[in-house]
Amino acid sequence: MANPAVKAIGAIITILGIIFLLYVFYLGAVNGAIGEAGKLKTDAWLALAGWFFILIGPALWAGETPVAIKEKLKR
């Protein structure tokens, strides 16, 4: 069983990642691009941060070994 604090952090990171990405995709649709030429804009940073949060968050939230795989092992 994963540490509850780690799970909570994982949940927060996951939700933040989803919010960041959805917001950035909305901005991209409105502006015709995420970020712009010449400088590194906040939306581009948010896109990268959201990407990494989504990669890390669910792993912390859900723990490492899925139930489906454990059941397969028992069989």
Binding site: A29, G32, A33, I34, G35, E36, A37, G38, K39, L40
Partner: peptide, 17 residues
């Protein structure tokens, strides 16, 4: 296909670093 992710350089206009 519609929206690029630009981290400072835009290949279409050739502007940026």
């Amino acid at each position: 296909y519609k929206i690029p992710l630009l981290l400072g350089y835009d290949p279409v206009s050739g502007t940026g670093d």
